[in-house]
């Protein structure tokens, strides 16, 4: 490393100008048609179609093993596809991997920071993999550390960072090449609530700055917070597509009443609940009653002489959409 480190700590927040779109003027950043990945008999991704427009924040929502990460890796060209078409920034990632990835920032599900290098070196070295010069990377790494709130950790060992810090560093690293598209695979899985909110704030700012975000998640709140539009995936196929609000409107009611009668009784009382709500879902531990007004429904339940151990009224979420579409809960 040269002598360029003297100015590396200067106070500068990351530039908020839209990241330059270089390649084409076309609106679609990603276009997938019949995208398929099979491992022998097992089909991880089963002929899915989707488009991602420049500047939008796009989500892939589904349980573990739905095929989200597989799709992400195909987009980055680090996994070949079995069939179908895939175009990323107008190129085929399988035959033009390096060129495609020059446009992408990748944040994998599990942090893969370089343990042998210090925090700042992680950013600089990663930029070198893109063929970027040090004269650019030294000031850039200072900006990114500022953005990730890690300026005072610049010379720390990666091992000594907390989980949230590692995650922010991984995201900062993904921005080193000023990508047009940032791929985030389960960005907040395993983080405590406070670290999640810090992270969402950073991602939200990137979205405002015009970066296209592609997010996989199995957290409803995350999808609702971050995504303009999303596809719900299960067992490698697309179940539904739209904005979070649209999906909730289409596949659920405004409110949900959750009742618990104790594990033995839940099944017995279902017959008596019939007709009290638009739709009823019976889960092993609780019963969900879908209606426009949850409080009113609760009154009707009491009126019928039923007294649940606990009751809760809440707004419908994507969790309910998923339950409706697949008959299963998302997190199990």
């Amino acid at each position: 490393m040269g002598g360029g480190q003297a100015n590396a700590t200067r106070q500068e927040s990351v530039s908020c100008a839209p990241y330059a779109a270089v390649v084409t003027s076309e609106e679609l950043v990603i276009r997938a048609r019949g995208l398929t990945k099979a491992y022998g008999d097992f089909v991880a991704v089963d002929g899915i179609d989707f488009d991602v427009r420049r500047g939008e924040s796009f989500g892939l929502l589904g349980p573990n093993g739905a095929g989200k990460s597989t799709t992400m890796r195909m987009i980055g060209g680090t996994l070949g596809r079995t069939a179908g078409e895939l175009s990323v920034v107008g190129l085929d990632p399988e035959t033009q991997g390096p060129q495609v990835r020059a446009h992408l920032g990748v944040v994998p599900q599990q942090d893969n920071l370089d343990d042998d290098l210090k925090v700042r070196e992680n950013l600089i070295m990663y930029g070198r993999y893109f063929g970027l010069p040090r004269s650019y990377l030294v000031p850039k790494s200072a900006e990114l550390l500022e953005f990730a709130q890690l300026t005072d950790k610049a010379s720390a060992r990666v091992d000594d960072l907390s989980g949230g810090m590692k995650r922010r560093l991984t995201i900062a690293r993904g921005l080193v090449n000023e990508p047009e598209v940032l791929l985030l695979d389960e960005p907040t899985t395993g983080l405590d609530p406070q670290a999640r909110h810090t992270l969402w704030d950073r991602l939200f700012r990137l979205k405002e700055a015009g970066v296209t975000l592609i997010v996989t998640t199995h957290f409803m709140d995350e999808a609702e917070q971050l995504c303009d539009r999303l596809i719900v995936i299960d067992k490698g196929t697309i179940m539904a597509e739209g904005s979070p609000a649209q999906l909730i409107r289409q596949y659920s009611t405004r409110e949900v009443l959750e009742l618990r009668f104790g594990s033995q009784r839940n099944a017995q009382v279902v017959a008596q609940l019939e007709g009290l709500a638009e739709r009823i879902e019976v889960l092993p531990d609780r019963i969900l009653l879908y209606s426009a007004d949850g409080e009113a429904t609760l009154e009707r339940v009491s009126g019928a002489g039923l007294h649940p151990v606990t009751s809760l009224v809440r707004r419908s979420s994507l969790e309910d959409v998923f339950l409706r579409l697949t008959g299963r809960t998302l997190v199990d």
């Binding site: 060209g77 035959t95 991997g97 390096p98 060129q99 020059a102 446009h103 893109f130 063929g131 090449n177």
Partner: peptide, 25 residues
């Protein structure tokens, strides 16, 4: 610099799917 890096990869080279010519990094 980032645009230059992208530009360089857009030029034709052998084995474009598996080789970027940046072994030095």
């Amino acid at each position: 610099p980032t645009q230059l890096a992208v530009e360089r990869l857009a030029r034709p080279r052998p084995a474009p799917g598996i080789w970027s010519g940046n072994m030095v990094a």
